[in-house]
Write a protein that binds this DNA or RNA. Structure first.
Ligand code: MN
Ligand code: MN
Ligand code: MN
Ligand code: MN
Lengths: 217, 217
DNA sequence: AAAATTTGTTAGTCTTGCCTAACTTTTATA
DNA sequence: TATAAAAGTTAGGCAAGACTAACAAATTTT
């Protein structure tokens, strides 16, 4: 049985791996994600290696083992199912669900998660557009194209958010944006890269940082 | 902010107090309830005293302070709301809910509990017939009359169970018993106190220990 | 009232998960 | 390629929550 802390390390490793694409995960980056010091992350890596959830040698590469990855995906499954529950059934807004799900994801009961999944009608995506792994750990592929990648004059559809923080999500709402919205890129400023977009007749300017956190197709 | 462990100690103190009626709570009894050694319970009592959740002096009486009691009741509220959710919405059986609720009761989010309460339509009792405290910490009084107190020839209604263990609850079901059932006491054996009862035309024999764990009115 | 038993307390130790400070290895830069 | 910077590691320490062993106080039994 894994502790909450161990689960959080595995989840962070998976997240960084998927986000970094090809890049290697480092002790410092892992520590930053978990709000701990590198020394602490290093201790835990040894422990997780000992339990064979990660592979790594001193000063070497860090990788989840198959077992570690399976555990991590299961935690993501629980997290996203709980987010969906909070959003769909309890009427939470999409910027409130993440924090509570961070706690709920550690509840240990396979039966609970299976029943929750069924109760929610086997959802494929959470309120942020992220795919929910099924019982086997399979999930639809993650989007890679960002709003910042869209050419001037082109239109796209918003399918997910990369940043899950309240501050970002509330800003998204304020701009009149939401999942499945059609977004047209009107122009980009040479000066600082600011992007002008149009959503449902309404035009706005957004920063490149903002545009890098919206996934589109 | 209280840790899960601290919350469990407060909850145990409340439970023992309510169960013992007038009796005083002791270190040993508290320890037994929490499956720890008396030395461990003693350490925690000092800590909870320091934080003014309990009153006590060395070798003296243990009592929850008002603050401690409020915290404890809130945990009970969360526990019973979750049990009700699992039973009503997720289709758990009444002998499965307790274990999972032991975990869920520690989730920290007032908003979550209020919304859950509303979602369940402000239930007054959990699946075991125990009263659910409201936001103010008020709850209907606990039943005191047990099946073992019922006279021969008298009838009563089962309103709650005292023991929440799977083994007990499954046995209750096996005997064809459930909340709100009418139970008639037919006879009691002089030899070992075994009680003969009748429920919906069906007669059965139950031990005194069993009868002490069924609350009736 | 003395002895025996039960109940409660203390001291010292362990593990987990975190920290700081100092050090080593790797990588980037001049 | 030598040096500086960044990344990673180790040693030692701390708090929480548990344990055992030894001891002290309170209660019960004789
Ligand atoms: Mn989330
Ligand atoms: Mn999400
Ligand atoms: Mn329960
Ligand atoms: Mn209950």
């Amino acid at each position: 049985m894994l502790s909450n802390t161990e689960e959080n390390y595995l989840k962070a490793l998976l997240k960084i791996t998927l986000l970094n694409e090809n890049e290697q995960v480092g002790t410092n980056e892992l520590a930053k994600h978990l709000n701990v010091k590198p020394a602490t992350a290093n201790d835990m890596l040894k422990k997780l290696k000992e339990k064979s959830f990660v592979e790594y040698e001193k000063y070497g590469k860090i990788n989840l083992t198959d077992e570690g990855k399976t555990k991590a995906i299961y935690i993501v499954r629980k997290h996203r199912l709980w987010e969906t529950f909070l959003y769909e059934k309890l009427d939470f807004s999409w910027d409130e669900v993440h924090e509570v799900a961070e706690q709920l994801e550690h509840i240990q009961s396979t039966k609970l998660i299976d029943k929750l999944d069924k109760y929610l009608n086997f959802p494929l995506f959470d309120p942020h557009g992220d795919p929910i792994p099924n019982t086997k750990g399979e999930f639809l592929s993650i989007y890679k194209k960002k709003l910042s990648d869209v050419e001037i004059g082109q239109s796209c559809k918003m399918v997910a958010v990369r940043d899950n923080s309240s501050s970002f999500l509330q800003y998204v709402v304020k701009l009149g944006l939401g999942l499945n919205n059609q977004i047209k890129v009107i122009s980009k400023q040479d000066f600082d890269g600011t992007i002008e977009i149009e959503v449902e007749e309404k035009k706005s300017f957004v920063s490149t940082k903002f545009a890098e956190n919206l996934f589109v197709i």
